[in-house]
Write a protein that binds this DNA or RNA. Structure first.
Length: 525
RNA sequence: GGCCCCAUCGUCUAGCGGUUAGGACAAGUGAUUUUCAAUCACUAAAUAGGGGUUCGACUCCCCUUGGGGCCGCCA
């Protein structure tokens, strides 16, 4: 796109928004639209507005509004005006400004741009089905558009239910999409669409047009699924004599089957990812690259660098399939970037959640829910009853920092630190061709070496220094395979097929527990 | 069915008329290694098809095919 087309982007003049309806949890699609709006606003020093579209009281739920607000904040996407913080163009909740819409509905009715429609829903639905069955664009047939004022008065007096319908003029409507160029629709195919349920309850298209106008929105950046709504909104703007904002329709995020992401594809709520232990920086980095990229070969971007690099010219036109593998990779990457202390802070809630440890503090301080834990805090290990401090838990979890994709995996990986008795099959102790005798031999050697080490010297370095030379010696038929000693050592300590290395595990466990577990392993043979 | 949008490796993408079509995730192989990770090296993997335009098309135009979105008194 020639640079000229972007001359309308003047820093400070930009006002964008997202307008979710609180009818479900914040999901990936909305969050990504919010991100792009946010990045665009930040990039050009504009304003990003949050507006709640809750005119449909039947479906709206304030719980969803809370979820949307909380998780957007958690992701680090901030707005400068919204229902929670107010602003100069409020209210930011449509249900709170019904009188404002009434004014415009009345105006539309008075200018004959709209009319009352008394058709029943069943009747309309039947006609819609019929039109589609004979291959026609289903649209309202205009039955009520010519009702005289006498007829209308009569129907109203009878108590007949009605809605307000827009009298769609017969003309071509075209607009320039910032991404796709000129898009044209024949309004003849659109038909007269509903704009209000009653004199004070606007339907989506009207509400959007009125709010975008009153909130002085300069750029409407939304999903591609809104392209067919755009001509309707433009027609309404014309009838109301509102200026037209710029439009940019983002490509959709697709499920594995390449169709629009929906409940059908499973959980795509941000709250779920958060619970599973995805970090906000990973989700942001991931979402930004769904339908956009900065051009270079760098793929790791933080929010500030995204703001710096963001440009609408580099937005993709085709839909992007949501690929969890990539999210996992990014999440693992960001997990590895954390300091040990920070990592422990965000892991501990998962240990608590799994019931491995219980925070030993007063109940009113609990829970700090995924936000991180107090460094001076002590915890009680559920399985053994012992008291441990933050530092001890940190030593445990950091052993798995580079192996984690999601924080929630931490409890399963480290549970052997918190249980007194390990459960595993004795076959697991066997390395390659080793038999019971060889294993017992190995365990005996380990027990002997370790019992000779002082408790305070039971650390990774010293253990390696004492055990590794012995491991070199064992092997079967002179193979010099350290596994004959180290594999049973590791299994005896962890009871797992895969885990962190035996030396670092032993260091955290401490001499007494290490010896105890080695003896228990022998008893299994 | 109608209207609209879209089209480079399995996935996310680079490319903006001349490239050995590049990168990342995933996959595979190897190195390291007691296991699993992490890390490093390497391998395999794409321009949907057909017409134009042009000295030259992944790139520009058209058609076909394919995919998607929307057709509410939901948003």
């Amino acid at each position: 796109m020639p640079l000229d087309d972007f001359k309308f982007i003047r820093p400070g003049k930009i006002r964008v928004r997202i307008a979710p309806s609180p009818t479900g949890l914040l999901h990936i699609g909305l969050a990504r639209t919010a991100l792009f709006n946010y990045l665009f606003a930040k990039k050009y020093q504009g304003n990003f507005v949050l507006r709640i579209e809750d005119t449909d009281i039947e479906r709206s739920d304030s719980g969803f509004e809370e979820d949307i607000i909380e998780n957007l904040q958690w992701l680090g996407i901030e707005w400068s005006e919204g229902p929670d913080i107010g602003g100069n163009f409020g209210p930011y909740r449509q249900s709170e400004k019904l009188p404002a819409y009434a004014k415009y509905i009345e105006k539309l009715l008075n200018t004959e741009s709209a009319y009352r429609c008394f058709c029943s829903e069943d009747e309309l639905e039947a006609k819609r089905q019929y039109a589609m069955s004979i291959g026609q664009q289903p649209r309202y047939n205009g039955k009520c558009s010519q009702l005289s004022s006498d007829e209308i008065r009569k129907l109203l007096a009878e108590g007949k239910k009605s809605i307000v319908r827009f009298r769609t003029p017969n003309e071509k409507v075209s607009f320039k999409d910032l991404l796709r160029g000129k898009i044209e629709f024949d309004s003849n195919l659109i038909g007269d669409f509903g704009i209000a349920k009653d004199l004070a309850t606007p339907l989506y298209n009207l509400a959007v047009v009125v709010d975008d106008f009153e909130m002085k929105i300069s750029h409407v950046i939304r999903g591609e699924d809104h392209i067919p709504n755009t001509p309707k909104q433009i027609l309404l703007q014309k009838a109301l004599e509102f200026p037209r904002p710029e439009y940019l329709h983002l490509p959709l995020i697709l499920g594995p089957d390449r169709s629009k992401l929906s409940k059908r594809h499973g959980a795509f709520a941000i709250a779920d990812y958060r619970k599973e232990g995805y970090l906000p920086e990973a989700i942001i980095n991931f979402m930004a690259f769904l339908g956009w990229n900065p051009g270079g070969e760098r793929e790791i971007y933080s929010m500030p660098s995204l703001i710096k690099e963001f440009s609408i010219e580099r937005i993709q036109k085709g839909g992007a399939v949501f690929n969890v593998r990539r999210l996992d990779f990014l999440n693992g990457f960001y997990i590895r970037q954390k300091s040990a202390e920070k990592f422990a802070e965000i892991c501990i809630p998962y240990l608590i959640e799994a019931g491995l440890v219980v925070p030993a503090f007063k109940s009113e301080q609990y829970p700090p829910a995924y936000g991180g834990m107090n460094l001076t805090q002590t915890y009680k290990v559920s399985g053994t009853g012992e008291e441990v401090n933050f530092n001890y838990l940190q030593n445990i979890v950091v052993l798995y920092q580079e192996r984690l994709k999601k924080l929630s995996e931490i409890s399963e990986l480290t549970d052997f630190f918190f249980n007194d008795k390990l459960e595993y099959n004795k076959e697991l102790l066997k390395w390659k061709e080793a038999g019971d005798r060889e294993i017992e031999d190995s365990l005996n050697k380990l027990e002997k070496i370790i019992s000779e080490i002082k408790a305070e010297d039971c650390n990774k370095e010293i253990l390696e220094e004492k055990i590794l030379p012995e491991a070199e010696k064992i092997g079967l038929s002179g193979t010099k395979d350290r596994g004959y000693l180290l594999w049973p050592f590791r299994v005896a300590l962890t009871g797992k097929e895969a885990s962190a290395g035996p030396f670092e595990v032993a260091e955290v466990l401490g001499k007494e527990k290490v010896l105890k577990r080695i003896r228990e392993a022998k008893e299994r043979l």
